[in-house]
Computed example of a mutant assay.
Amino acid sequence: MWELRGLLNEITYINTIMPSPRNSPKNSRDRRALDNRLEFLSLIGQKSPSPPDSPSRRKDYTGSSGSPQTLPEEDCMKLNPSVVDIALRSLLAIDLWASKQLGVCAGESSSWGSARPLMMLIEVSGHGIPWLAVTLYGLCKSDSSAWCEVLLNLLFALVLDLVLVAAVKGLVKRRRPAYNRMDMFATVSVDKYSFPSGHATRAALVCRFILHHFVLALPLRVLVILWVFVVGISRVMLGRHNVTDVICGLIIGYMQYGLVEYFWLSPVSAPFLFSLCS
């Protein structure tokens, strides 16, 4: 229908500009002008006429070819990432690369696979269950109020560490490295997550607690500090954690000791607990 109407309009228009025999162009200049008009009309006639635009179509056309529409804010952020975003992504890539390079004891076939049993022994030394068991045993055998106070606060520190680490792991939910073998000693549901390293937080917390409340010779104090770093390094070598998990774990454990000192349990603040120990 639209093609027939367009053809009729074209014929009518050609008849209006076509000269009659009496008014045919006399010179070559008028003939060339007439030929150019006819050629132009023939080119226009090759295009099929389109139906008139509806309001909705006119709106879409205006939106597509008119003024440029602004992109959503999320797309703009993806196209123009901030400096902070680029820096964080770069640090994450470096963290993953360095952790994989240092995971030399992740399996028996790894480059340092023969040292895996030793690393797993160090893993047990930083686990929460042995420390809780030793602390409870010391409380049962203590016959001094001062010794009981120290051990009771150490128990409080260990329980606080377990609760805080489990909460952070549940919030962050960072998966452990893909090359890690889930053969860890006594794990629970939140242990499938990686950030932060519970062994690192516990080691830093226990180290600071021991150095402040236990009387040790200088060689023993140095060994306690070295033990903290050995535990942290073993977590990366076994493929249990990434480097940032261990570093942040050490920082969190160091800061947790401040909470223990702030909420220090004494016979005055917690008489019921000390009555159980006596």
Rank of each mutant, 00 (worst) to 15 (best):
K141C: 11
L4D: 08
T244I: 12
W131H: 10
S64T: 03
C140Y: 14
F185K: 11
P271M: 09
E123S: 07
L162C: 11
A167N: 06
S266G: 00
R22E: 15
S109F: 07
S67W: 04
I247L: 11
K59C: 02
V172K: 14
P72T: 15
F156Q: 14
L220S: 10
R181H: 12
S54T: 13
T135E: 13
D143A: 05
D143F: 05
S67I: 02
L8I: 11
R116G: 04
N36W: 04
A178L: 12
Y61M: 08
P117V: 07
S234K: 11
S142P: 00
L164K: 04
T16R: 15
L96Y: 14
L154A: 04
V124I: 13
L88A: 09
L226D: 14
V188C: 03
W112V: 01
C277M: 15
V163D: 02
S24W: 06
I122V: 15
V150N: 04
L250Y: 06
G63T: 06
E10F: 09
I17T: 07
V236H: 04
I225P: 05
N153H: 09
K26V: 09
R202M: 03
G107C: 06
E108T: 01
E10S: 13
S197R: 04
S189P: 03
K173F: 04
S42L: 03
F229L: 12
C277S: 15
L160D: 10
P25D: 14
L218N: 12
P81N: 08
R116I: 02
G239F: 05
L8A: 09
M18Y: 14
G113D: 13
H212C: 12
V165C: 12
S142L: 01
L132V: 07
T70S: 03
N9Q: 09
S82N: 11
S194P: 10
S64F: 10
E149V: 01
N180S: 12
V168T: 10
K192R: 13
Q69S: 08
R240E: 14
A270L: 01
P52H: 01
L205M: 13
T187F: 05
G126W: 06
A106N: 14
H127P: 05
